[in-house]
Structures are given as C-alpha cells and as structure tokens.
Amino acid sequence: MNTDKEKTLHGRILGDLERRILSGEWPPGYRLPFEVDLAIQYGCSRMTANKVLTQLARAGLIERRKKSGSFVAQPVAQSAVLEIHDIETEVRSLNLSYGYRLETRNRRMATRQDCTLMELADGSAVLECVAVHLAGGRPFCLEYRLINLATVPEAESEDFSLIAPGAFLISRVPWNAAEHRIQAVTAAADVATKLEIARHSACLVIERRTWGAGGPVTFVRFTYPGDRHALVARFQPGG
C-alpha cells in the first residue's frame, strides 16, 4: 500500500530523472542507476524506484534491458497535444542543431477555402508561407502557414528569411484560443521531396488554428516524417 511519503518520493524521483534526460545531462545510451542504487540515493523502497523506471520506459525516455539495466533511449521529438510550441525549441531539446529554410512567401487575397478555414471575412488579405525546419542538417518538418493580415498587419513587413513565422507570432501576438487537428497521412510527391523521404512514407500532420483578441490569427499545418515525432498528453482525473 502506497504511503503519502512514497507518492511524494515517486514524483520527486521521476522529475529528477526526466530533467536529466530531457536536458541532455544524461545523453542517449547513458545507463541509469540500478533500482537498488536509486532506492539508496532517495531513501525509498525498490518498488518505488521500479515504478519510476517503468513509467519512464512507458514514456519512451528509457529502454530497460534484462540483466543489463536501464538506458536513455534515442530521442524522438515529442510535443504536447495542447501546447503551442516553437519548433526550434523542440529540435534543441533533442540536442540537435536547428536550421530553417523559407521556401515561399506570398501575400494574397484569401480564397473561399481560406475564409472557411480561418473564419475570415470575404476580401481578407493573408500571408502564405511555406518553410522547412531542419534538425541536425536533416528536414525535421514542413510548415505551411496562413497569417491573417487584418489581425497581424506587422507580418507584412517581415520577410521571414531569418525568423520562422511561428516564432515571430509567439513573440508578438498573444493568443486566447487554439484548436488542434491531428492525423496520419502518406507523403505526396512535393512533401516527400521537401522532407527528403520516400513518396507515400507515413507522416504525422498537426493542423492548428489560433485566435487572439482581434480575431483569427493563423492557420498552420506541420508535416513530420512519422518516425521522427510523437505526441504527448498528460491528464488528471476529472473532479
């Protein structure tokens, strides 16, 4: 039977080990202390130490090998389902160099499809951007974005050659509502070319719409190679 002390220790140990792994202090392949050593270090039972390691393994952060111990797993990018995150931060969390390449930037009038997608009035102007984010010199994800120039007029004077549209918006435009849509797709020819993967490869697509005090802000579609990204959500029991 778990005591309050054991539950508190479990959370503390889990937090410590997660921090060391995600910060890169313990790199991929690093062997974690054995259960008995963790128990001695934290003054807890071996059962508590075992539960922490099991939880880390289920999260994909470590690999448990019979008779060998527990090792930090090779990284797979993770993003929280309900968070708005910066791709550069995501890449650097993997201890990889970040790169960014703007493919196209086009100011145009919103199409009927754009107006429906972003809840825009007819005749609205949008900025359309396509960019590739790189991790360790390899394509990490493809970004397709529409920005509502009525809500974010300053975007029109930004060429986005050096800063990604997402990072620009996070730093400039407060948002008060967001919607995510997540799906698995196969890569079309143009997407496969930009991501340097085989055509029809499995991809993960995250679409997001955000709104601010002035109305719709942006629509973005991120396309990731399926083997390089994972989604994470943490839940608590409802009251």
Rank of each mutant, 00 (worst) to 15 (best):
159 D>P: 02
164 A>W: 01
160 F>E: 08
155 A>E: 06
169 L>P: 03
154 E>N: 10
156 E>T: 04
154 E>A: 13
144 Y>V: 03
152 V>N: 06
141 C>R: 01
140 F>C: 04
155 A>F: 05
143 E>N: 11
144 Y>N: 13
167 A>R: 13
168 F>D: 11
137 G>W: 11
161 S>V: 08
125 A>Q: 14
156 E>G: 13
163 I>T: 14
143 E>L: 14
167 A>K: 07
146 L>I: 09
129 C>K: 00
153 P>W: 09
157 S>R: 11
130 V>M: 06
149 L>Y: 05
136 G>V: 07
168 F>A: 09
135 A>M: 05
126 V>W: 00
148 N>D: 12
168 F>T: 05
134 L>C: 04
132 V>E: 09
158 E>R: 02
164 A>S: 15
151 T>G: 10
160 F>L: 08
138 R>N: 12
140 F>R: 01
154 E>K: 10
131 A>V: 00
130 V>E: 14
167 A>D: 14
167 A>I: 03
135 A>K: 01
146 L>M: 10
141 C>Q: 03
157 S>P: 00
128 E>A: 13
156 E>S: 14
137 G>L: 04
134 L>T: 05
162 L>N: 10
155 A>D: 07
167 A>Q: 13
149 L>F: 08
143 E>F: 00
142 L>T: 05
158 E>P: 00
163 I>N: 08
158 E>H: 03
167 A>N: 10
144 Y>D: 14
165 P>N: 09
162 L>Y: 02
144 Y>L: 08
136 G>H: 07
127 L>M: 12
145 R>P: 00
137 G>N: 09
150 A>N: 13
166 G>Y: 01
135 A>F: 04
142 L>K: 01
140 F>H: 10
132 V>L: 12
157 S>I: 07
131 A>N: 03
133 H>T: 04
137 G>H: 10
130 V>R: 09
145 R>F: 01
166 G>P: 02
133 H>L: 01
138 R>V: 05
168 F>C: 06
125 A>G: 12
140 F>V: 03
135 A>D: 09
128 E>H: 12
163 I>V: 15
152 V>E: 07
133 H>P: 06
151 T>A: 15
126 V>I: 15
138 R>D: 12
149 L>W: 06
133 H>M: 02
134 L>P: 00
164 A>C: 12
141 C>W: 06
136 G>E: 10
151 T>H: 08
158 E>D: 12
137 G>S: 13
129 C>M: 14
134 L>I: 04
133 H>V: 00
152 V>F: 08
151 T>V: 15
125 A>D: 15
142 L>H: 13
127 L>Y: 05
165 P>V: 05
125 A>E: 15
161 S>C: 15
125 A>P: 05
146 L>D: 10
129 C>Q: 11
164 A>R: 02
128 E>M: 02
169 L>D: 06
155 A>K: 01
163 I>L: 14
137 G>P: 02
125 A>M: 11
144 Y>C: 07
147 I>K: 01
169 L>C: 06
135 A>H: 02
155 A>L: 08
160 F>W: 09
164 A>Q: 06
142 L>Y: 11
149 L>M: 11
166 G>L: 06
142 L>W: 08
144 Y>M: 10
125 A>N: 13
152 V>Q: 04
135 A>S: 11
147 I>R: 03
